[in-house]
Design a protein around this nucleic acid. Structure first.
Length: 854
RNA sequence: GCCGGGAUGGCGGAACUGGCAGACGCAGCGGACUCAAAAUCCGCCGAUCGCAAGGUCAUGGGGGUUCGAUUCCCCCUCCCGGCACCA
């Protein structure tokens, strides 16, 4: 009695004991999962998950992300790849400052202690990162000095520049935000805070120089999700068209360039519309009090709409300026209006209004009774249109549509005319064919403390002077008081601000803004390849060996932030000669969100589940395995704790089963698994043993295939469950003897290997228990034997008129004739077709038989 | 409005190139073991009619192609995400 209890206790699966033990062992010997030397001769595989912000706590989104990446990295190791699987910290940023204000803790201290806590959590999760070799922390001078170095390189090349412009200002962050960080008018960090517009002088990075390449490059990234590519395409927003210069009547010096994608409709222009912020409007407003008032109202209304959050809801309206412009194509005079729907910062801030062929212009023209002039007709109208038919306007046309009433271009197609008229404008000197982007340059100045100091100096004599490379890093001062009042905290530190001009040696002021933290994350993955290099951001040879990233895994929320910035940065680094490739990642995977009670798991919604709790209750293996099992990785995952308990039960079952067979496995000579002798022995199997081996090899095949791209780890784990169920059921049926023992040993050994990517702690533990030696990650991944996996018998569904009647068992190799006769010989089939005529027999080899009868 | 992704039992999901719809798990029900409970093991588990054998209906809705459709085509509804007066 006591002995039985003793035995039961020994066989009880206890992750709280197993997991910390292995965690300690892996920590002590990182060589178990460290990348090989570059010249190892193995193929390389760079597997990367997006680096986290060190908030202090891992959440389930992280757990899911890392469970995917870690499973892949472990699989690739076992497949014999030279794997780089690093982790680091996006360690600059606002929360550290907010914590400093709240708790009076220095941001550096707060951040570093959070990192320590989260690193511990990640280790507890059993994630296979090489901490000592590759960890990167962006808030350390050894890292951010290279941000400054890149900034100087960009400045040299005119890619970093300073300009005054309207910028997004978050009153809660007390800093400027990039366009990418404004979501529907709200701050990306403060869902309830509307972003204000302020006119400020700021540093910008010329990402627009790469707009074309960033866009076109998307076509060559088949390994990226279509969704992300589409989002980036929309964000970059390329429009090809023409810029045409209208002149202001009676004011020879005043010109109004307009941008249009439909220059072919220019003969139909009936007014010019300017944005309220347009430079000419400002000039005219000084001479026209009424106009000034109207424009002011317009701007105030926009401001109010922005504040209420629905700028799209404003009704279109405008006001005539009383001035007129001349259409250079036909000399026609058009009234100039100011309209609230014209965007100041897109194109030229001015448009030609063609009511007949543009929906917005049409709406506007109807409202103010502006004339509508048709100049394009559908291709099938033969181009003879005389404006008198009743085709519904606006007619926005198509490429083949035909121009009417358009001077020398009458009768030409829209598409032809667009090109011809653009050329004509160029020849005549009043326009050009051009391309406009929605993408704007990246504003990187932040009026905050916890970021990379921008390495620039302002000298009264020499103006903007870059800090010489030799003087890098410009260190971020440690002792500083952070307050809520806004403005750059560094500006209040005379010891930081006051410096000497590197050019003339005279007194000068340092730039006191810091860089956007998206700068840090734009190139961190290159640093992983050479994390401790003190002389360069990284060694080019090392980067070129590892890049591009073979598999990048992260949330889709970075589609137009990090993922566009880092593509830009990569292209800049390529042009600097640092790297060979212009794209950072060959393949990108965006995992779904973790959902609880119908909403994304988040602190603010109060529906978070703590990984620590789950680990304490069920273990890390069960927690990460559940994250993979509950849904395919690309879909959202509904968190249900009962599911974790289910996985935990399954793992306990595996543990007991393997422990039960462990003595038998140990008794089998190592090296027998999968070799010729064993295989010959399998040929003489009992049916139960053969069936088990068949399932085993089908499972290997299924999992291996999924790792190569489909990533449906939920079905991989289901397949392992089936194997375990079958093993438990088959074993009692198998006769005892050498063959059965070998079969069981083979199955158990392979099962442990198959579990290694998903439940690494338990796999490592069981690997030792069954008498194997050596690091599990260095074991070769099992290879499926097609011969063993093949079914000897198949079940063939038989249909009559497409409806299932019976299922017959046939030998696997049966040809069409054999299938047909076997089916017709079956009495149940015969009963179904007596008295009827078989019109047609459809036989799909190995699949089914369908009798069409009448 | 445009773009992308979805909709399958009580729940998460499976069915990969058109071929047995509901794998695997969760929850539930029944049983074994137990003084009892937990744990474990075994069985059942889409709806409906039927004592049963078996039948009928069923993958958001409606059409179509096909011997055969969760899968392909057309139309529609709803949900999630992105962009949104971009000229």
């Amino acid at each position: 009695m006591q002995e039985i209890e003793q035995a039961e206790r020994q066989a009880r699966y206890n992750p709280a004991e197993i997991e910390p033990k292995w965690q300690a062992r892996w920590d002590a010997d990182p060589a178990l999962y460290r990348a090989e030397e570059h010249d190892s001769g193995k193929p390389k595989f760079y597997c990367l998950e997006m680096l986290p912000y060190p908030s202090g706590q891992l959440h389930m989104g992280h757990v899911r992300n890392y469970a995917i990446g870690d499973a892949l990295a472990r699989y690739m190791w076992m497949r014999g790849y030279n794997v780089l699987h690093p982790m680091g910290w996006d360690a600059f940023g606002l929360p550290a400052e907010n914590a400093a204000i709240k708790n009076n803790t220095p941001p550096r201290e707060w951040t570093l202690s959070n990192i320590t806590a989260m690193r511990k959590q990640m280790r507890r999760m059993g994630l296979s990162y090489d901490w000592a070799g590759t960890e990167v922390t962006t808030c350390l001078p050894e890292y951010y000095r290279w941000n400054q170095w890149f900034f100087l390189k960009m400045f040299e090349r005119g890619l970093a520049y300073r300009k005054s412009s309207k910028v997004n200002w978050c009153p809660k962050c007390c800093t400027v935000l990039a366009n990418e960080q404004v979501i529907n008018g709200y701050c990306w960090r403060h869902e309830d805070t509307l972003v204000e517009q302020r006119e400020l002088e700021q540093w910008f990075l010329r990402i627009t120089k790469y707009a074309d390449e960033l866009l076109d490059g998307l076509d060559n990234l088949p390994g990226w999700p279509e969704k992300v590519r589409t989002m980036q395409r929309n964000w970059i927003g390329r429009s090809e068209g023409a810029e045409v210069e209208f002149s202001v009547r009676d004011a020879a010096d005043q010109k109004i360039p307009v941008f249009t994608t439909r220059v072919d409709t220019i003969f139909g222009a009936t007014s010019i519309q300017l944005a309220p912020e347009h430079a000419l409007v400002r000039v005219w407003a000084t001479q026209d009090a009424e106009l000034a008032r109207s424009v002011e109202t317009m701007l105030a209304e926009q401001q109010a709409a922005r504040e209420s959050g629905d700028i799209g809801a404003i009704e279109k309206h405008g006001v005539a300026t009383g001035r007129h412009a001349v259409n250079p194509f036909n000399g026609q005079t058009l009234p100039i209006w100011v309209a609230n729907y014209i965007l100041a910062d897109y194109g030229t801030g001015a448009i030609m209004s063609v009511p007949a062929h543009d929906e917005r212009d049409f709406e506007f023209a109807v409202k103010y009774s502006l004339p509508t002039k048709r100049v394009v007709a559908p291709a099938n109208s033969g181009g003879t249109d005389d404006n008198s038919d009743d085709l519904a306007l606006p007619y926005t046309g198509e490429d083949e549509a035909v121009l009417v009433d358009s001077g020398q271009w009458t009768g030409h197609s829209s598409l032809e005319a667009q090109d011809e008229m653009g050329r004509f404008a160029e020849e005549q000197g009043f326009g050009k064919r051009t391309t406009t982007f929605r993408l704007k340059d990246w504003g990187v100045s932040r009026q905050r403390y916890w970021g990379t100091p921008i390495p620039m100096v302002y000298c009264e004599k020499d103006g903007i002077v870059p800090v010489p490379e030799a003087q890098l890093p410009v260190l971020l001062p440690e002792k500083i008081e952070i307050t809520q009042e806004g403005g750059s905290p560094l500006a209040k530190l005379p010891g930081f601000v006051d410096t000497t001009c590197p050019k003339c040696g005279g007194p000068a002021r340092r730039e006191t803004d810091t860089m956007d933290t998206f700068v840090d994350s734009s190139w961190y993955f290159y640093r992983y390849t050479d994390a401790h290099n003190a002389n360069a951001p990284f060694d080019s040879a090392k980067a070129n060996y590892w890049f591009p990233i073979d598999q990048y895994i992260g949330g889709v929320e970075h589609a137009i932030l990090h993922l566009i910035y880092s593509r830009f940065w990569t292209k800049v680094m390529r042009d600097l000669g640092l790297i060979a490739n212009g794209e950072p990642a060959e393949r990108l995977f965006t995992q779904g969100m973790v959902i609880k009670d119908g909403a994304k798991m988040s602190k603010s919604k109060g529906n978070v589940v703590s990984p620590d709790d789950m680990i304490a209750r069920y273990g890390a293996d069960a927690t990460r395995m559940y994250a993979l099992f509950a849904a395919p990785p690309d879909r959202d995952l509904e968190w249900q704790e009962e599911g974790v308990a289910g996985i935990s039960r399954f793992l306990a079952r595996v543990y007991r089963l393997v422990m039960k067979f462990a003595p038998a496995v140990r008794s089998v000579k190592t090296g027998a698994h999968g070799d010729e002798i064993a295989r010959a022995a399998f040929a003489a199997q009992t049916p139960a043993g053969a069936a088990l081996l068949r399932t085993l090899h089908q499972t290997i095949a299924k999992i291996s295939e999924d790792f190569s791209g489909r990533w449906h780890f939920n079905t991989c784990i289901a397949a392992i469950m089936i194997l375990v169920n079958e093993m438990a059921a088959a074993e009692p049926k198998m006769e005892s003897g050498a063959i059965a023992t070998i079969t069981i040993a083979e199955t158990v050994c392979t099962l442990v290997l198959l579990l290694a990517p998903f439940a690494p702690f338990m796999a490592a533990e069981l690997w030792v228990e069954i008498g194997e030696e050596g690091a599990l990650l260095r074991q070769p991944w099992p290879v499926a034997d097609a011969e063993l996996a093949r079914e000897s018998e198949i079940e063939v569904p038989v249909q009559v008129n497409g409806k299932l009647v019976i299922v017959v068992k046939l030998a696997a190799g049966a040809d069409e004739e054999a299938m047909k006769s076997a089916v017709l010989a079956d009495e149940r089939v015969a009963a179904r077709i007596t008295g009827k005529t078989v019109l047609k027999t459809i036989v799909v080899k190995g699949k089914l038989v369908n009798l069409v009868v009448k």
